[in-house]
Simulated scan of single mutants.
Amino acid sequence: MTFSICVREAYVDDDGLDQHRFGVAVTTRLPGVGALCPFASEHGAIATQALTNVELGRKGMSYLADGVAVDDALQALLNADDGREQRQLHGVDADGTFAFTGDECHEWAGHREGDDYTVAGNLLTGESVVDAVAESYENSGRDEPLAKRLIDALGAGHAAGGDKREDLPIQSAAVVVETTEDREMDPYYDDLRVDATETPLRDLRETFALAREGYEAALEKYAEE
């Protein structure tokens, strides 16, 4: 299933405490990708795709919550999965990264790991898609919320060719961001999905913009009360 990015970012909150945020974003030329592929919590972020095994994401997050390192957790799950050569699985935790592309994933398929992120894709027009996603994220800075920067990274991959299955017009996209910070109100724009549309990234950008506007309006309203 198409292409995705997982990232971690260290930051200092308003109280001067060290925190991490984790994010994952994915898009595909099939409906409902947000229900199957992206997983994130205060412990890390994981994407499972190609011939998708949702349990790799669910169990992977459970292992991270138990303190297992992301590379140990995901490799152990793949070792127990008879269909692993048809899978893509990648993710990050607070200390490491992991990325795997099975030998039987459909071309073009591959992945890229950076210091704080992983990108993977299959059934793409070429390696340039994964590179564009990674480079967009690397150059994104920290001025905008992570969710927006992840959506923009997917947009860069789409502009570089994206999913090659042009005969499948109904597509989807999703973004999820979680943090170790204990916040009174989580931003509404940190968990968004577009489940069935012909323009998933445009629609996800519009959804993000509206959710951000609604979040800021709620902050203003309840601050006054």
Rank of each mutant, 00 (worst) to 15 (best):
T179H: 06
V54S: 10
I170Q: 01
E104C: 00
P38R: 00
L204P: 09
A120R: 05
L124C: 03
M185W: 09
D182C: 08
T2M: 07
L210Y: 09
E104R: 03
L36I: 12
D15W: 03
V194E: 04
G126D: 01
I46F: 07
Y222H: 15
A173R: 05
L201Y: 00
V12P: 04
L78Q: 08
F3L: 00
A132Y: 00
C37G: 07
I5R: 05
A73W: 01
E135R: 03
P169T: 03
A218W: 12
T180C: 13
G102I: 02
E184A: 15
A35N: 08
A132C: 02
L89E: 00
V177M: 08
E42K: 13
G57N: 09
E135H: 10
G114R: 02
D18R: 15
A218R: 12
E198Q: 12
A35W: 12
P187K: 05
A218C: 07
A173L: 00
T179L: 04
H106L: 11
V7H: 00
V68C: 08
E166M: 14
G67K: 11
A73V: 02
R87N: 02
Y215L: 04
T179V: 03
S4E: 01
Q88N: 01
E127I: 00
E220P: 11
N139L: 09
Q19W: 12
E225A: 12
I151K: 06
V54P: 12
Y117A: 01
G102Y: 00
Y222W: 15
A80N: 06
R212V: 02
W108R: 15
A109V: 01
A65E: 14
G96M: 06
D95N: 10
T28L: 03
V7L: 00
T2K: 03
F22H: 06
Y222A: 11
G155M: 00
D203G: 04
L77C: 11
L210P: 02
A10D: 10
P200M: 02
V194Y: 07
E181K: 15
L30V: 10
E127N: 14
G32H: 07
E113K: 11
Q75D: 15
A159D: 15
V133W: 05
R165V: 08
A120G: 13
L150H: 06
D186G: 14
G114T: 08
Y188F: 15
T179S: 02
L124A: 04
S172E: 04
E178L: 13
A65P: 07
D66M: 15
A76H: 14
A173G: 06
H106R: 11
E220A: 10
K148H: 10
K148N: 10
S140F: 04
F22L: 07
G126T: 01
D72P: 08
A218L: 10
